[in-house]
């Protein structure tokens, strides 16, 4: 199977899962922004997702995408370390056009994974998981709005989420155009275009996440007035 055996095939798997995860983030950001304007509307979305069969299937699909992306990341990194060889350069100079993020995708990925664990603990555990097993925390599993207020009233979580969002921005600032490049939809002209499109898209996307975190941290959203 070329997707698991050849170097380009493995990278195609990384690209496709990566792009799918960016699309999920887009949906997630759109959902979050609703919470800025109306708690009721946000909770309606939470109710709609909840522990319904389609939400559970979609969550499992999403988990599979994340797991494949992570497993292939480690596999590719392991092979690349081996290809680099045992002896290391005594002096290395990073050329200007080499972005920092592009050489640190695994480290950024690990930070993102740790952030994800925290996020699952803060929300998924209290919401979808609580609904599946039938337990109840401080708030109802479908009262997502209350869980957001609760989480971001803690400044430690606010700081950790901001770090997490910045790490995702760096990861995607390289990941977006890199995925397109790997799929071969790039060239001399489109390389620059994809890079700009990627940067703009990813910046807007992560700004949407950041605004929600900060709005709830400083309690200044229209939905809170």
């Amino acid at each position: 199977m070329w997707l698991t055996k050849s170097s380009i095939g493995k990278k195609v798997v990384m690209s496709v899962t990566g792009i799918a995860l960016i699309l999920f983030l887009t949906f997630h950001a759109a959902m979050n922004v609703v919470a800025l304007f109306s708690g009721d509307a946000y909770n309606e979305i939470c109710e709609l997702l909840g522990a319904n069969w389609y939400a559970i299937v979609a969550t499992m699909g999403l988990a599979a995408l994340a797991v494949i992306h992570i497993v292939f990341a480690f596999l590719l990194t392991f092979e690349n370390r081996k290809a680099r060889g045992q002896s290391k350069y005594a002096v290395t100079a990073r050329p200007e056009k080499v972005e920092w993020a592009s050489q640190n995708m695994l480290v950024l990925g690990i930070i993102i994974f740790l952030g994800l664990l925290l996020h699952l603990f803060n929300f998924w555990y209290n919401m979808m998981f609580a609904e599946i097993v039938g337990t109840m925390g401080a708030y109802s599993p479908s009262d997502g709005f209350a869980w957001i207020q609760e989480t971001f009233s803690n400044p430690v979580f606010v700081v950790l989420y901001v770090i997490w969002i910045v790490a995702i921005w760096f990861h995607l600032s390289h990941g977006f155009w890199s995925a397109i490049q790997t799929l071969g939809w790039s060239g001399k002209t489109w390389f620059c275009r994809w890079k700009i499109i990627g940067l703009v898209y990813v910046t807007l996307l992560m700004a949407a996440f950041l605004i929600v975190v900060l709005a709830f941290a400083f309690k200044c959203a229209p939905s809170l007035c």
Binding site: K10, K11, E79, R84
Partner: peptide, 11 residues
């Protein structure tokens, strides 16, 4: 190894 599009090569 596997290319990760760092662009060090073209530089």
């Amino acid at each position: 190894g596997n290319c990760t599009n760092t662009r060090a090569c073209e530089a």
